[in-house]
Simulated assay, not measured.
Amino acid sequence: MTDTFAALADPTRRHLLDRLSEEGGLTLANLSEDLPMTRQAVAKHLAVLEAAELVASERDGRCKRHYLNPVPLAKMARRWLGRFEEVPLGAMAGFQGAPAGAGMARTATRGASAHS
């Protein structure tokens, strides 16, 4: 899973995954079209994504087509995000017992005493 997080840390790799999510079966040339870098740099990013198993590739004659592999992303979502789906946000932050307007009242009191 560490490879997945490392692969997703780079904005260029996230852009490539977005492109493959929209339209699978793209070649290196297709993926390089709108990026301000060389095809070799894009190939290195694809290699990182393949090592993290986020991209699957297959040969089609002389070209290699790339596809998004959503399985590692689904596993990550289940493991890291799924446990928080049913928990109220306030409980996760430790604010279970805080009254709704408590923070506002303290701020107003501080502001009033500063002007006195």
Rank of each mutant, 00 (worst) to 15 (best):
M92K: 09
A43I: 07
A114W: 14
S113G: 06
E23C: 04
A112N: 01
L49W: 03
A51I: 00
A98C: 05
D18N: 00
L46E: 10
P88I: 02
H66P: 07
V48D: 11
G111E: 05
P99Y: 03
P88Q: 02
R78I: 13
A105M: 10
R110N: 14
V42M: 03
A74R: 13
L17R: 00
L89V: 04
M92Y: 14
G61I: 10
P70H: 04
A52C: 02
L73V: 09
T12D: 11
E22F: 10
P72K: 00
S113W: 09
L8W: 02
F5M: 06
S32Q: 00
G97S: 09
H66A: 05
A108I: 12
A91N: 14
V87W: 08
Y67W: 15
F5Y: 07
T12N: 10
R59Q: 15
E33K: 02
W80A: 11
H15C: 10
A41K: 08
G90W: 02
R79P: 05
A41H: 13
L28R: 11
A98I: 09
Q96L: 09
L31G: 11
R79H: 12
L28I: 11
T12S: 09
L46F: 13
L20K: 01
D10C: 07
A6W: 08
R19D: 08
T4D: 00
A112R: 08
H115P: 03
A6R: 04
A91I: 14
G25C: 05
M1T: 05
V55Y: 12
E85W: 08
D60H: 14
L54W: 05
G90I: 01
V42I: 11
S116Y: 05
D10R: 03
A91S: 15
G97K: 04
A100C: 01
R14P: 05
L28A: 07
E58A: 13
L81Q: 02
G24S: 08
P99F: 01
H115L: 06
T109D: 14
V87S: 06
R59A: 15
G101N: 10
Q96D: 13
E58K: 12
L16M: 09
R59I: 13
A74C: 11
R14K: 01
R59V: 15
V87E: 07
R39G: 15
R78V: 10
D10A: 08
M104Q: 04
A91R: 15
H15M: 02
L89F: 10
P70R: 03
G61K: 10
D3K: 03
A43E: 12
A74Y: 14
A52E: 03
T38G: 12
A6L: 12
M37L: 09
G24W: 09
L8Q: 01
L31Q: 07
L54D: 04
R65L: 15
K44R: 11
